[in-house]
Structures are given as structure tokens and as C-alpha cells.
Design a protein around this nucleic acid. Structure first.
Length: 591
RNA sequence: CGGGCUGUGGCGCAGGGGGAGCGCGCGCCGUUCGGGACGGCGAGGCCGGUGGUUCAAAUCCACUCAGCCCGACCA
């Protein structure tokens, strides 16, 4: 490709909208164009990168037995009604009517489509196991697109679906994906971490997320430096401190003016925060059946020095939605904000964290302005509907595995794998006949990778102050020829043209900067666009007997004779590929 | 959906009741040519939109739309 003919051009300055480095470089490099919030056009350069990534996805899927299909982006509503997600997913899902006034859905993901397909074609245990996948557009009307391609509304995703007759079969495919995903990300040059995660809207049993650690991420990983434990904060476990257990003392009301927060209360009473109980008032939306959902008032009780993990609480009460209660709702329940506790409150679901439930003689609210109760004890003074871990793991807590101090770091989720089990197959009748002729639900898994998000994360990981530094595996071109105008004659021009033809003939992906621009301009663009290998053809190098070879990001360069240039570049391409191949490792599966 | 910020040529920005400007980029001509060269000529904007105030609005007011950041949410 001649640089002069590329559709799109580089920019000296990024639009002020672009904050994330990947967003800035992708726009400045002429890779992407923003159409609206969370909607992007991919220009030819980016398209080439996407093609490379998709190529890797195809190879790795094939390696674990995946068969490619394509399912529609527009889906009829009835299959989403069958799965129930029609009713449980909110405005993130776009629904519309076709001309016949049928309810339609823009697919956010394709479990329903796949189940519908599988229910038609899977009949017998002899046809299982299966692994099918596609790379398809998804639409999620996200409330807050951000950071360029990191969080968008329309995006392409590789999603695969495994179909098995046994849990062992599912486990095998799940583990195959676990390894495959490391291969995929590492082949793209991205360092990732697999962490245990919440199953969220997907439902199902076990899930892992593949995380790229970066401060611009919006997930938080809790990890242990000592033993390697890591988990999404949403589901992170930690070793709770020993509960203080004393003989139960008598309940006593004390005046505690201006002590609405745990900190103020602990200060006022001169006790540690760990001797208090924190009441968090929440409202959960719970699905009664497909048609009705009800709001339930929840009082969550934690030890005063701990914070609520809303995901854990939502899962504990099977909430579709969970939000903090409004002040009037708290009052209506008979509690007093700042002085609240479940003591004497009726009609609320009381969820007590195990640590708070075991602790004795805590200080809790009296549900009276300016008063607290000493020696509150779970079970005696209030009844717990549920005792379960609902505390958020935080920096400084102890590792559940080894007791070492936990750390936290931000991350972007670039992939996920879910053991769905029979959650969809039962709802959508994806069944087969087993050896005994008995009808059984298929046991499923689903496995996703956001292609554009992966691309932008690679830019986050591979760049410097001048631009992108593509790994050879996904670079839009392998080598860039930079032609510097030679006023004394046409030799440079001729050499560059010849090399360009030779590279094309040799099957090397070459970008030829043939533009009539000054050297500095071209070098800066080369750095920005980020092609891994660079050949500079100019008077200076020709006088030294060849053309100048340089790796993107390296300061060193060497003169290569013109007739050795193709050979040299091919060797360098192979060397870079080998570097990536050699870095691939078998990873240990962690539950 | 809450809080904050921003909308003026392709990009970056200034101006802030009476002329629509600057830098970069873009077109043509000439010079230049190893890290974003220079001169000359030129194209390009109903100042996000609507309504209002005013003799007069890019500028003041109201409403509205869009984008970005933080939060809620989410792959």
C-alpha cells in the first residue's frame, strides 16, 4: 500500500475528546473515526489490524475444535422471552418493531440465537460435544461509553458456545478456552490475568474474566502478591478477622449526638470502628416471575470497619437490580438514617455479614435521632433472614488463600468465559436423547472476546511518546519503506519503488511512504502509525551502501545492502513472530 | 440516570453586543529535503439547534441537542 493513497490521514493533534492514549493514537494515526458516543468507523489501517486479530481468533478456535457460524444481529423477541432475558435486561437492550409490528431485538450477545439454532440441530448424544463460534456485531446501549474503543455501544465480539452431555465435558471445553484465551491474548501481545468473576447478566455457575491491568480500566482486581490469588473485586473473597466474642451484655440505649457516620460514632464513644455495626439500607428489585417484579427493602449489616459489596448482596438476595434506599424509604420502614439498625424494624429483609453476625455486643443505631444502642447482638436483638458474606474485599485485607495482605489494581476486561450449565438449555429446550433414549438438557458454556477492545488494549500496552508500537502479529503492515526525496537524482526513488515491488512479490505486507513530505514529517508519521519494521531509503544511506533498517521503538539502526533488504526484512519478521511464539506458555488452570 | 466541563473552518484554540479570527492541516506555484521546512496566492465556517431580549446577538437570557470526564451501570 502506498501511504499517499491510504483512505484517511494522520493528525498532528488529537481531538480534545480523546483522553485515553489508545483513543488518541488510533485517531491521530488514521485508524478510527468516531461517529457518535460509543460508535466508531474503522478505517483501512484499523481494519487490517482487526483482520489480523480475527485471523488469530479463527486459528485458536479451530485448534480447540471450534466451527464457525454466523448468527444474525437482529433477532426476534420470542427467543429472548423464552430465555427470560427479555424481561430482566433493562434499557441496555434495544427493542424495536419490524414492519409487521413484530417485537425485535438487537443482539447484545448470542446465547439465545445459539440455543435456538442448537435446539433445531442437536438431537442425539452422538452429535455432542460441539463447539461453535462466530465473530459478530453486538449492540449494547451502554449508558456510558468511554475511552475510545475500550467501552463502546456497538462492537464486534468473538463468542463461542460449547455444548456437552456432561459437566466433565463442559469442564474440558472450559479449560480448553482458558488456555486458548491466554494463547490469543499473548499472540496479540497483550498481557492478561484470569480472575474469578461474577456471572452478571449471563447467569450460570462459574466464570472467569481475562483482565488487562491498566489505570484506565473500570474493573478492580484484588490480588495477592504472595500466592497469586486474584479476583474481580465484585466477587473477591478475603480472610475475615476473628470476631470478638464476649458474653452477651444487656442492650443499652445511649445518647450519641452528631454521630451519623461510623467514624463519628466510634470517635464519640471512643471505641474502634470494628466494635460497631453498620446498617446499609438498600432496595432490591426481585423477579417474582416473568411478568412481575417487586421491590424489597433490605437492611444489610456489616461490621463498622467494613464496606458493603453490592454484587455479593445482590447475588445473596437474587436481586435483578439493587440501589441505595432513598431517605423517605428508610423512614417509611421505621428506621432513622444515620441512626439505623434492624432492631425493632419489621418488613425488611435483614442480611447480615457472617463477621457481623458472629461479633458480639456491637454498637448499632437505635432508630431514634441522636441515639445508639450498646451491646446489639444478632439473633437476640434482631433476626437475620440471611447470614452470608457481603463484605467488599479491600487493600489491606488478608488473602483468603495465604493470609498475605491484598492489593488492588484497575483492569479492563478483554474476555470472559462462563459455565452456563443448563441455564439456557432448560429455558429454551436445547435437549438431546441420551444412550437410554432419555431427553436431557445440553450443558453449555459461553466464551467471549471483544475484538475492538482487544485492539485498543494492545495500543495501551504497546506505545511510547511518539505513537503505537504494534506487535508483528497484528500490525497493519509488517514493514514501512520511508522514501526520502533525493535532490541529486532519482536513485532513492528508484530503489524504493523497486523494493516496494519486491516486497509485494515476496508476500511481505509493505507500506510505502511515497508522499512528497519532508523527512521529519514522514518519520513522525511512521512512529505514530507504528509499523514494526522500517526501511529508510535516502541519499545518506545509499552513500553508505544500502538502505537503513530500524525497528520501531529502537534507537539503533543498520545499513542493509539493497539486494539483501528483502531477505533481511523476512528474517526480521520471522524473528519477531518467533519471539511471540516462544513467549506462549501453558498456564495452570485456577478455579 | 445524577454531578462537572465543553460546543466558533478538517484538528487545536482565541474572541465575548456593531468587522468571524489565529496556528496547524488542505489546494496551486516556486524554493527546500535524514526527525512535524519556507515564501507567494487561494479554498473553506448561517459561531451545535430553537426561541427570546435588543436598532443590532457568535457574544445576553431561556429551552434543547451533542460530546467528554466522574459516579451509578456495564464486556
Amino acid at each position: 500500500m502506498r501511504f499517499s493513497q491510504i483512505f484517511g490521514h494522520t493528525l498532528k493533534e488529537a481531538p480534545s475528546d480523546a483522553q485515553a492514549i489508545s483513543h488518541q493514537y488510533l485517531i491521530r494515526g488514521g485508524y478510527i473515526h468516531q461517529v457518535a458516543a460509543g460508535l466508531f468507523s474503522y478505517l483501512p489501517l484499523a481494519r487490517r489490524v482487526l483482520n489480523k486479530i480475527e485471523g488469530i481468533l479463527h486459528e485458536e478456535m479451530a485448534a480447540i475444535g471450534g466451527q464457525e457460524v454466523t448468527m444474525p444481529v437482529v433477532l426476534p423477541a420470542d427467543m429472548w422471552q423464552e430465555s427470560g432475558r427479555w424481561y430482566t435486561i433493562g434499557s441496555e437492550m434495544t427493542k424495536f418493531h419490524d414492519r409487521k409490528d413484530h417485537d425485535m431485538v438487537l443482539a447484545m450477545t448470542h446465547e439465545e440465537a445459539l440455543c435456538n439454532l442448537a435446539s433445531k440441530y442437536i438431537r442425539s448424544h452422538k452429535e455432542l460435544p460441539q463447539l461453535v463460534y462466530h465473530i459478530q456485531t453486538k449492540w449494547r446501549d451502554d449508558a456510558r461509553p468511554r475511552a475510545g474503543l475500550i467501552r463502546v455501544r456497538e462492537f464486534k465480539m468473538k463468542d463461542s458456545y460449547s455444548l456437552d452431555t456432561s459437566w466433565e465435558g463442559l469442564d474440558k471445553q472450559y479449560r480448553a478456552h482458558y488456555q486458548s484465551y491466554f494463547n490469543i491474548f499473548n499472540r496479540c501481545g497483550l498481557d492478561v490475568l484470569a480472575v474469578k468473576s461474577d456471572t452478571g447478566m449471563m447467569g450460570g455457575k462459574i466464570a472467569h474474566e481475562f483482565m488487562y491491568l491498566t489505570p484506565i480500566g473500570e474493573d478492580t482486581i484484588i490480588y495477592c502478591d504472595n500466592c497469586g490469588y486474584h479476583s474481580n473485586r465484585q466477587v473477591a473473597d478475603f480472610k475475615k478477622p476473628e470476631a470478638v466474642k464476649e458474653d452477651l451484655k444487656e442492650l443499652e440505649k445511649v445518647e450519641t449526638p452528631n454521630s451519623k457516620t461510623i467514624e463519628e460514632l466510634a470517635d464519640f464513644l471512643e471505641i474502634p470502628e470494628s466494635r460497631t455495626a453498620k446498617a446499609v439500607f438498600m432496595v432490591a428489585t426481585v423477579q417474582e416471575d416473568n411478568e412481575t417484579e417487586v421491590e424489597k427493602f433490605i437492611i444489610a449489616i456489616l461490621r463498622g470497619d467494613m464496606n458493603l459489596n453490592e454484587t455479593k448482596l445482590a447475588n445473596a438476595v437474587k436481586a435483578k437490580d439493587l440501589r441505595p434506599a432513598h431517605e423517605d424509604e428508610i423512614k417509611a420502614a421505621g428506621a432513622v438514617p444515620g441512626y439505623g439498625s434492624p432492631v425493632g424494624i419489621k418488613g425488611a429483609i435483614v442480611v447480615v455479614d457472617d463477621l457481623a453476625a458472629e461479633s458480639t455486643n456491637l454498637v448499632g443505631g437505635a432508630n431514634e435521632d441522636g441515639y445508639h444502642l450498646l451491646n446489639v447482638n444478632c439473633g437476640r436483638d434482631f433476626k437475620a433472614d440471611l447470614v452470608i458474606d457481603i463484605t467488599a474485599a479491600e487493600t489491606g485485607h488478608r488473602c483468603i488463600e495465604c493470609g498475605h495482605v491484598l492489593e488492588a489494581e484497575k483492569a479492563v476486561e478483554v474476555g470472559n468465559i462462563f459455565k452456563l450449565g443448563t441455564r439456557y438449555s432448560e429455558a429454551m429446550n436445547v435437549t438431546y436423547q441420551d444412550k437410554n433414549g432419555k431427553v436431557q438438557p445440553v450443558i453449555m458454556g459461553s466464551y467471549g472476546i471483544g475484538v475492538g477492545r482487544l485492539l485498543s488494549c494492545v495500543v495501551e500496552q504497546h506505545h511510547d511518546d511518539y505513537g503505537i508500537k504494534w506487535p508483528i502479529s497484528i500490525a497493519p503492515f509488517e514493514v514501512e519503506i520511508v522514501l526520502l526525496h533525493d535532490k541529486k537524482g532519482t536513485e532513492a526513488q528508484d530503489v524504493a519503488e523497486t523494493l516496494y515491488e519486491e516486497f509485494k512479490a515476496a508476500g511481505v505486507e509493505v507500506l510505502f511512504d511515497d508522499r512528497k513530505e519532508s523527512p521529519g514529517f514522514k518519520f513522525n508519521d511512521a512512529d505514530l502509525v507504528g509499523i514494526p519494521l522500517r526501511l529508510t531509503v535516502g541519499r545518506r544511506a545509499l552513500d553508505k551502501g544500502g538502505v537503513e533498517f530500524k525497528l520501531r521503538g529502537s534507537k539503533d539502526n543498520e545499513i542493509v545492502p539493497v539486494d539483501k533488504a528483502v531477505e533481511k526484512i523476512k528474517a526480521e519478521i520471522e524473528r519477531l513472530h518467533k519471539e511471540i511464539r516462544d513467549s506462549l506458555q501453558t498456564v495452570e488452570y485456577k478455579d
